[in-house]
């Protein structure tokens, strides 16, 4: 969880805008570098052509989402232990960023599948569970928004955020334990029915590692940090509104 620790610090001390801006700049540069490597440095896959390059973002987005949702679990557990609101904010940021990243993961996968599997979508266990993963976290946001009492909202969100992680774990392991998925496993051995797998040469491996690092260690924490700032701001405005109401 080292990647996310600056965001926690930010939740308690809101005056780190300079650092956040610096991190954002680093993230932007590194993201463009990763994009450039995927487009120009990595070798073209002989069988799949250029669309295979989407794979670098597909994987990066999934593991970015994984880290974001793991942050939600950490935030939930820590909130229940300490009852400090900053952990709830941390968990909420994880959910929102995770939903955006898993949407990118689904969209890139679907666009890749069109020329390779000859279909945008198939009801394969892995694809289904990845889609449901997004729905679980949208349900999290709905549960949250339906509760008026602040304390109850934070408690329920923590519980649901921890339970929801089972769908992430399921998505991750279903490819290893179920041989009837057609989703290829590029790292390690995948399903025997997998279609569209490919071998990676060294330029591809380097590009993948760089992109994974950018998505997991830079993009996810940066987005979460901005989300945490927004939430702290929203909490301050709400408090001022309440104070104003009580006055008038």
């Amino acid at each position: 969880m080292t990647a996310a620790s600056p965001s926690v610090a930010a939740a308690s001390a809101p005056n780190h805008l300079g650092r956040l801006k610096a991190l954002t700049a680093v993230t932007a540069v590194a993201f463009l570098l990763g994009l450039g490597m995927a487009l120009a440095y990595a070798g073209t896959d002989a069988i799949q052509g250029n669309v295979q390059r989407l794979f670098y973002f597909h994987m990066g987005a999934f593991f970015g989402a994984f880290v974001a949702f793991a942050c939600t679990v950490v935030g939930g557990v820590q909130y229940l232990r300490t009852r400090n609101v900053k952990w709830d904010t941390f968990a909420l940021a994880g959910v929102e960023v995770g939903v955006v990243l898993s949407f990118i993961n689904l969209a890139t996968g679907s666009i890749w599948a069109r020329p390779i599997w000859n279909t945008w979508w198939t009801w394969d266990p892995r694809l289904t569970s990845a889609a449901v993963m997004v729905l679980v976290y949208i349900a999290y946001l709905m549960v949250r928004s339906g509760i008026e009492n602040r304390d109850t909202r934070h408690r329920f969100a923590a519980v649901y955020g921890i339970l929801a992680f089972s769908s992430v774990v399921f998505t991750l392991v279903v490819i290893r334990i179920r041989p009837d998925t057609i989703h290829p496993a590029v790292i390690g051995t995948g399903a025997q029915d997998a279609q569209g797998g490919f071998a990676m040469n060294s330029s591809m491996t380097t590009t993948l590692l760089l992109n994974m690092a950018v998505w997991v260690f830079l993009l996810t924490p940066t987005l979460m940090w901005w989300r945490i700032r927004l939430q702290n701001y929203a909490d301050r405005v709400t408090q001022r509104k309440i104070a104003y109401m009580e006055q008038g």
Binding site: P125, T128, S129, V132, A139, M142, L163, S167
Partner: peptide, 11 residues
């Protein structure tokens, strides 16, 4: 809230 959590079971 329940259906997505129960999906692994259902599958």
């Amino acid at each position: 809230a329940l259906l997505p959590i129960a999906l692994p079971l259902l599958l």
